[in-house]
Design a protein around this nucleic acid. Sequence first.
DNA 1: GGCTCCATGTAAGTTGTTACATGATTCA
DNA 2: TGAATCATGTAACAACTTACATGGAGCC
Lengths: 179, 179
Amino acid sequence: MGLSHAILVCLSEEPLTGYDLAKKFESSVGFFWHATHQQIYLELRRLSTAGAIAGRAQPQSRRPAKTIYELTDTGRAQIRAWSRNWADPPAIKDDILLRLYDLADIDRSKLVEHLTRRREMHAERLALYEKILSRKFADPERLGASGIGRYLALDIGMRSERMRLEWCADALKLLDIAE
Amino acid sequence: MGLSHAILVCLSEEPLTGYDLAKKFESSVGFFWHATHQQIYLELRRLSTAGAIAGRAQPQSRRPAKTIYELTDTGRAQIRAWSRNWADPPAIKDDILLRLYDLADIDRSKLVEHLTRRREMHAERLALYEKILSRKFADPERLGASGIGRYLALDIGMRSERMRLEWCADALKLLDIAE
DNA sequence: GGCTCCATGTAAGTTGTTACATGATTCA
DNA sequence: TGAATCATGTAACAACTTACATGGAGCC
């Protein structure tokens, strides 16, 4: 199961609450692993009863109480074991390619609209990643071990956005001349 | 739901049996939409009772009987309606990026092994796509409307493999010098 | 005699999505 | 005064995975 590993990896960096994790899954880690808060809270309870993580309840004044989870030694051992396993490259499921497959039967102008919007989204994403790069990885020589990994994750994110951006542009060109 | 559309799109090309569809989902369409035969047979029954497709039973000598499904007018209308909807870019869920995120805590030599294997897989995939390209799309000028769509789907597949291939190579280089 | 291809299914379990719910605090 | 943030959950459903099952045909 992927989500459990994603959570363990996050917690290996620092102890977090379910709420914090949910936020993380909407930005940094979320760039390559998506999860909702419902999934996260459920999984936290599972990992907790399995002994991979431990939660400390922390009452707060003026705020609902929260539970901060951290890795146990068992959890740490689990990550190490998991990291040795082979991971199949992810399968792509992209609706827009499905539409292209049947181009003859489909509303052409809508497709152009969608491709244009996607091109913009990829450009925005790319700009965001570049901003993160310049802020956090300005000096790649001085990155620590975990820094390199995060740099590489960001790097493939950028390459992916750039590739899709270019493809959208070329697809639009081709659709235009093949009118 | 995605699978139903994937099936409808396949059937818009030609009538097929569940078995044929399952094969298609392991090669051509399978490059951007994966499904097992169990899912497919279930979905075919659903689509059939919903009236989007119709199956003709065809008894065979020396072979088990088969059911050939084809689109109904309702089904065709459904595709057209669906094709106008916006499709969010696919979310990536890649285990290997998860591992990178936590590089400090992880078995480095195993990671190198995995990246090397992945690089090979991407190279193989790319070669396969290039072969398909030269066989089926040798002359892109003369493609019909549906041909362009399929060409573009193949094109993004090739770009994707090439991008990942290069990323693997660069990641291996970086991990090597950052030893 | 075993392997792959044809052709279709059931059943159980896991994962992911969507809708709904609560309730206080802080900021504009 | 209303929206966003903090913090956590239940419930129903949809989608996907994995294991198991059947049985003949043709090939090496």
